[in-house]
Design a protein around this nucleic acid. Structure first.
Lengths: 405, 405
DNA sequence: GTAAATATTTTACCGACTGAAATAAATATG
DNA sequence: CATATTTATTTCAGTCGGTAAAATATTTAC
């Protein structure tokens, strides 16, 4: 008879070690217990306990192959641990204007299936929004003969202002109503945990878990698409701002009373760097007709059109200025420039890098690295999946202790 | 006979509750145990234990006066707790070009004595630097018939790049050598713990502990003096950047290839807002002669000089642009504009506020509050003292457990 | 085969925290 | 005025996460 007498320790600080161990294993790929202990500044005994729990939850497994010991070769060999990817399936969704992109991944982030679900309307009621997500998920799951109920978690990225901790959408370009709490809507309609977040934050999560930010504590992810987005990771955590509306890098002003932006204000970075800004500039050059994408501008520039080159160059200069401001303010370990489809070579040229270097306050330390990441068009959905994996990990670890004997 | 067998818990997470309780008491001024428990989401039993320790360490005391209970008046009355300010004396120093400002404060931050120690040279060797600090401290302490040995801690603010955790100064305008570890130098020369940090960070600490940021979790402190500084507090902690050289707000660029800045780059905010920038502008207007301070420009503007007004107005516009960028990126609870002596009304005018409002991306939520704080000329030294109090608090709490029976 | 080296697990114990019960100190009520 | 009621704080016994040290496991060196 277990007497449930005293005291679960405060939820905030509970299980932090197990989650840290899990994240460390994910970041390293495969790693021995003794290395985890030294990396996390904890004792081997703690790592033994934590990994035992993670293994029993099916989140982690021991690998066959063995790593060589640090010094020499004598002594008991280290046993490598890695994620047990097969146990859980997670879906990531990105809701865009005309399409919902869905990706199914295993627990290591490997793609299992993907799908595009066409939307007939850009903006939907919350109910319609959730139904569309349900349908998109079902179609994707059927590809691999699974049902939605098999999913360990679903993560949804939308453009807009989201309080991710509460699944609360203040405003989104995909939804007709403001201030919607999706917690109940989603749990009613889906048989598994679901999470909503802002899309740029999700890409930052993807870079942190699987991408170029793996294992870093302080970095920025700049997303390039129609507009310019930003995700901020500080101390290993996504920084969301006090009201969840920070990181509006695209709307920081780079020119007093400058070019007109989609948002209605003047001088926004996006008004110089966004695709619509470039296309707008090109209309002035006389190619009024049918310029439809940034890669067309690149083509023209490459074939000797000086005006096209000049349009791209100015965008690059402004972008470089914006990036140097980010470095001056945040002093990050690294900045990751992530793009899905749009061509953005003009934002990574050596001229832009020079502009950045010349705009950063001079110190002994070298400039933070600027890494460019060309994702495919599933960038946003993969970002959502990354967040889903993280959230499911946390859920599973919590279950672990609440169910324990 | 005590057998020192197992296990101090990892230093990082040790005593966090006691420190949180102490900080909460400091933020509230006086508060009852039951309120602390609910504010910190912990149990009353924990608060009893924590406060008992803090009282025995002489950091906290019970007050005579009693607060009324929340609802009704029946029941055992709450006992208010407050800091016991008299037990410890802390010194804050700011090293400037020609002077070291020293302030002695009690543990509640009340000024006990202050002093200015003239420097004969703006840049010193590390040894000379430490000796000057020692002398400045001795002169100040003698005012109240104490010796330096009575101090519980000393905190030193310098302009430059500092790794505060290690008392390591990468570079400072006050010191002739780079990359100096002051830990040993200070502990050899001073009979009490000493801490070094960047001056703008210290002002942020002062606002957090005693000023307009009391109790806030996410806020920015913009300091106005010769240049423009920034301190960033996120999640209640000072954010210092990866290499300790972030928060260079004054050198974020507000104009592509704009005005020349002291730092050698072009278009820095400081090159439009710093005092030297305003004085430079005024030289062009024909008043070449003896314009020496910003308040003279204010005087001229107030007496109808349109050129002076225009110079101040442009600085305000650029400042507003910079502030709106900060809000767009950080989405803080509040921005505190702190100045010591320089006149900066032109940076808080209604035109500037309008510029800020129009530069922030529009959301439902109201604009973060912008608070203006006119300190006296001891702003920087008081900032240092605030940091000193915090550090000494942490030390005392740690002693508490290591000395415990 | 035995010693030395290294990784992991087991053991015994510490300390922070908790819920529940006990205690303290006030007011309300008759 | 005694007693019930209410609220704040403390005490108590127990849980949980963590640790150091010892024990155990598994390898190579000799």
């Amino acid at each position: 008879m277990l007497k449930s007498k005293a005291s679960p320790v405060s939820l905030e600080q509970r299980n932090t070690t197990r989650i840290r161990v899990l994240e460390h294993i994910r970041a390293k790929g495969s790693v021995s217990r003794i290395d985890i202990a030294s990396a996390l500044q904890t004792s081997p005994a703690t790592v033994t306990a934590a990994t035992a729990d993670l293994i029993s939850a099916g989140l982690v497994k021991e690998t066959e192959s063995q790593a060589q010991s640090k010094s020499g070769k004598r002594g008991r060999p280290r046993v490598l641990l890695q994620l047990d990817g097969q146990m859980h399936l997670v879906a990531g969704l990105k809701v865009a204007r005309q399409v919902i992109s869905v990706i199914l991944v295993d627990f290591e982030g490997n793609e299992v299936a993907s799908h595009k679900y066409a939307l007939d309307q850009a903006r939907m009621s919350p109910q319609k929004f959730v139904s569309a997500i349900r349908e998109a998920l079902e179609e994707t799951c059927s590809q691999i003969d699974r049902s939605v109920a098999h999913l360990a978690g679903v993560s949804i990225g939308v453009a807009g202002l989201v309080d991710a901790n509460r699944n609360f959408v203040h405003w989104s370009s995909s939804i007709t109503e403001r201030n919607i709490d999706f917690s109940h809507l989603l749990s009613n309609k889906l048989p598994c945990p679901a999470f909503v977040d802002n899309d740029a934050n999700l890409v930052a999560k993807a870079e942190q878990l699987f991408g170029l930010g793996k294992g870093l504590e302080n970095f920025l992810v700049v997303t390039i698409e129609h507009g310019v987005g930003l995700g901020i990771v500080l101390d290993g955590k996504l920084y969301r701002g006090e009201r969840g509306c920070g990181a509006e890098f695209g709307h920081t002003k780079v020119q007093l009373d400058g070019a007109l932006c989609q948002c209605g204000q003047r001088g926004c970075l996006e008004a110089y760097v966004g695709d619509y800004a470039l296309l707008r500039e090109m209309t002035v050059t006389g190619h009024t007709n049918d310029m439809e994408s940034v890669s067309e501008i690149h083509d023209r520039a490459n074939s000797g059109d000086d005006r096209a080159s000049s349009v791209l160059a100015r965008a690059g200069q402004m972008f470089g200025l914006g990036i140097s401001n980010l470095i001056n303010l945040f002093d990050p370990e690294c900045i990751i420039v992530s793009g899905a489809q749009m061509s953005f070579e003009h934002l990574c040229s050596s001229e832009v890098m020079t502009r950045i270097r010349n705009g950063v306050v001079n110190v002994d330390a070298p400039l933070p690295q600027i890494k460019v990441h060309h994702w495919g068009d599933m960038m946003w959905a993969k970002g959502a999946a990354a967040y889903g994996i993280e959230q499911v990990s946390i859920l599973k670890v919590k279950e672990l202790t609440s169910n324990a004997p």
